[in-house]
Structures are given as structure tokens and as C-alpha cells.
Design a protein around this nucleic acid. Structure first.
Lengths: 239, 239
DNA sequence: GACGTTAACTTAACGGCGTTCAGTTATCAA
DNA sequence: TTGATAACTGAACGCCGTTAAGTTAACGTC
């Protein structure tokens, strides 16, 4: 990962008052110039992400983040209303990559059914690859933010905590395509999408929370889940 | 729920030294007689359960439990190694009821396929009915206890934190029956049981963590999940 | 009935947490 | 030079889970 201190090589930044460490890490006191607070905000987010990755979700504290950003704990409250908001923004930046991957699949794969399968597989692997972010985004107590109608997800794309719904909106669109094209049975895309999401989420979340359970081979689980779900949803004509 | 103070109407219990409250709640100081510590243990568990139900998992603290049990916070450590253990025992006592219900289904329903469906439905409804206990048992960070081989679950039936695996063991047995009877496809009962569990868990846990999401009708979700799973797993001959 | 042992329980404190309050200091336009 | 204000800090609050050390009541034994 990148260093916390980046960009704009300002002399005052490079040699803050009282600096005495010869290495890259600057010592306090040191502050941003007026109007540069947003830079500090970014630095705090970068520090938070580093702590989050190194120490995990449970062990990420305000004081650790502050120390890593060379700032007092109180300073975080100049830029974020509370700890939750910081973690949400971290997770959002991670899940933006999932949305991107999903969009790529949408572009590259034309067949609706293969699209659906490919996208769900992408979701599963992403969740298993980023367990801490996944936990916080989908497994922690909801903050009510998910309550926004996912149909209007486009309107507030950059609102923190909405990356989950955005991903679901993509899934919903594809499921609707599959149904109207006659590949999947049923007449309720929302219900079908929710069930498919639930199945995938169940596998990811169980593997994350119970790593010591004597699971079958992970690849077999992924394939098995996709098979079971699609086979269970396939329209009569396509079985 | 029952009062915290129950059983053995000992005069010393009814009128502890320094008692001055006229109602049922006794004032401290007051202590159990020698050899009666296990009674205090039960009282603490009852108090913990009450707090757990009233205030929820997140807001249950050692100090609240102690206050409700008319005991100092440190007293809890005479009977439990840490807070987790108290919560685990609460959840176990709840999930014992699930195991019981599952056993009843096993007795009453002979057809393997109906057995499986009925049991999964039972699991879903139970989870949705006891969200806090479900969270703690299946959605919190695993304590490594689940790591015990579920085949030997019978050996340590009363070991705290093993109610989850015991439930899975039941599911596994039924799935194996369904496969060997030719109802379900595949040749790997473990894999199949894990997938079915994962699907059910996904639905329950999403509904619990994201209550504000615009879900479809809950009954439709339950039925839809069971249909999708069984349809997806049904052997060729039985479709 | 006094005595020593020990189970039952408490008080005080530790080090942590997220967060708030009341400043302080550096910056910058006028 | 000054006054306004953005950027930031130190000290504290009220929680938390947990530990160490001490106290008190109950009991078997003489």
C-alpha cells in the first residue's frame, strides 16, 4: 500500500516543526494549511485502510488510525461524524471494485444466463477475497442505509454505504433479463434476485465466520452453489 | 420471564442483611451458603438472558447482568471465565429447543424429502424468531469450537457452543438418507448439506442484518428458498 | 463454643474504548 | 498588524471487560 503522506511536496510538510526523525515518517507538530483539510481527510482514510487490513475489522480503533495518520484522535472528528462512517467509506472504496468487475462482466458476456452465473461467481470470490470488508458491508448490523429503494440506487451512487444496494441492483437487472427471456422461471425478478443473493451470501458469510468448520473443498462449494441455484430457478423449457 | 430469585425459600434469602426494599427485589449484602454457588450461577444466567432479550446482543454488558443479578460485576468471574461464555450458554439453551424441534420432525415425518424440507423450514423460522441468539451462534466470529468434527458431535453434546454443529449433524443425516434413497442427486452428502445450510443461513442472516431492505414477502422468501434448493438438488428421476 | 479453612463475594483499580469540550495555534485576507 | 477562522490538541467523561487483593460468612472439627 501507499504511504500515508503523498502528493504536494510542500516544504512545510517535508520538514514540519519539531521534525527529528530522518526517515520518511514525519513527527508532529504539523498541520495542513487552510483549505487543505480534505487532504488530511484522505490521509486519515488511507491510514484507516492500512490499520483495517493489518489488524482486521475488530481491532481497528480510532486511536490506532489517528496514530498512523500522525494526528490526535480528536482530529478524526473534524472530518468524520463517527468511527462507523470511516469504516463505511473504506468498504465502499473496496466494493467499488466489485461494481466495476460486475460492469465489465455485463459488457463482455452477452448471454443472460452465463452473465448471471459469471456475476454470482464474481460476487462469491470477491467476498472470500475481502472478508473484513464483506463482514462490515453485509454482515454487520445494518445502519438503515440499505433501506433506500434499490431502484433509485443510481441517484445517490456516491452516498456512503450504498455500494451493496448498487451491486444488488445490477443482479436484479440481469435476473429480470433472464426471466423475460424465458431462461428462468417465475414472474417476480425481485424475489428471485433476493433468493440468489441470499444463497451466495450464505456461503460467503459461513466460510468467513466459521473458517474452522470442516468444509468441503471451496471450489466445489462455489460450483455447487451456482449449480444448485441456477438449476433450481431454470424455467421448464431449459432444464 | 421468571424472577431472578427463585426456589428454596430460605429465610436468609428472603430477608438478607441490610434489606430495606419492601418489594420482591432483595437488597445487598446477601450471599449464598456454602455449596450453593451453582444456584447463583443459574441466577446469573437467568439475569443475563433477561438483559439479552430486553437490550439485545450488542447492549448486553457484564455490569448490566451483574446489576440484574444483584451481584458485583466481578462475581460473574467466579462462575464464568469470560463474557463470551455466558452468552454462549444462553444461546445454547435456546438452540437446544431447535434441536428438540428437529428431533420431533425426525420422528414424525418418515418421507426423507419431506423431512428435509420440513426441517429446513423449521431452521429458517427458528432463526428469524430468535435473531439475537442466531447472530451470536452463527454470525459472530467463530470461537473455533465449531471446528470439532461434526460426526463426533454426540460425544460432547453438552459442551457449550456445540449446538450449532449438532443441528448440522442432524441435517447431514437426513441429506445422506435422501441421497442414498435416490431422491437427491450427487454423491457427497457433506457437500450437499453444506450448500443447503448455506442457502438457509443466507436468507436468515440477510433478513436479520438488513431489516430495512425492501424485501419481498417473508413467507414467499421462505417458500422460494426451499423450492429453489430442493429443485436444484433433486435427482434426475424425481424432477 | 472458639478455631481454622475455605467458599462466596466485594472494592478498587487497570488499560482500553468512542466521543466531547474547551481551548490553542497556524494561516491568511484585509 | 490585526482579526477571523480553519486546523488541530490535551484533558476528560463515562463506558467497557477483566484482574488483584482483600473481606466476610458459613462450615467441619476440636
Amino acid at each position: 500500500m501507499e504511504d500515508v503522506r503523498r502528493g504536494e511536496p510542500d516544504p512545510r510538510d517535508a520538514e514540519p516543526v519539531g521534525a527529528d526523525t530522518p526517515d520518511g515518517e514525519a513527527a508532529r507538530p504539523y498541520r495542513k494549511r487552510k483549505g487543505e483539510g480534505h487532504v488530511r481527510r484522505e490521509e486519515i482514510l488511507a491510514a484507516a485502510k492500512a490499520v483495517f487490513i493489518e489488524d482486521g475489522y475488530e481491532n481497528t480503533t480510532i486511536r490506532k488510525i489517528a496514530a498512523r495518520a500522525h494526528v490526535s484522535p480528536t482530529a478524526l472528528y473534524l472530518y468524520f461524524p463517527d468511527k462507523d462512517r470511516i469504516l463505511i467509506e473504506i468498504c465502499d472504496s473496496t466494493f467499488t471494485r466489485l461494481i466495476d468487475e460486475m460492469s465489465r462482466i455485463e459488457r463482455e458476456e452477452r448471454d443472460p444466463l452465463r452473465r448471471l452465473r459469471h456475476m454470482m461467481e464474481c460476487y462469491l470470490r470477491f467476498g472470500l477475497k475481502h472478508p473484513d470488508e464483506y463482514r462490515l458491508t453485509f454482515m454487520a448490523k445494518s445502519l438503515g442505509i440499505l433501506g433506500v429503494n434499490h431502484k433509485s440506487a443510481v441517484a445517490d451512487m456516491d452516498m456512503p454505504g450504498t455500494k451493496g444496494p448498487q451491486g444488488f441492483a445490477k443482479l436484479l437487472g440481469i435476473v429480470a433479463d433472464c426471466i423475460s427471456a424465458g431462461y428462468l422461471k417465475g414472474d417476480d425478478p425481485e424475489l428471485t434476485a433476493e433468493l440468489i443473493w441470499a444463497g451466495g451470501h450464505g456461503l460467503v458469510s459461513l466460510l468467513i465466520t466459521h473458517p474452522h468448520f470442516p468444509w468441503s473443498d471451496q471450489e466445489a462449494l462455489i460450483k455447487g452453489m451456482l449449480d444448485m441455484q441456477l438449476r433450481g430457478m431454470l424455467a421448464e423449457g431449459h432444464r
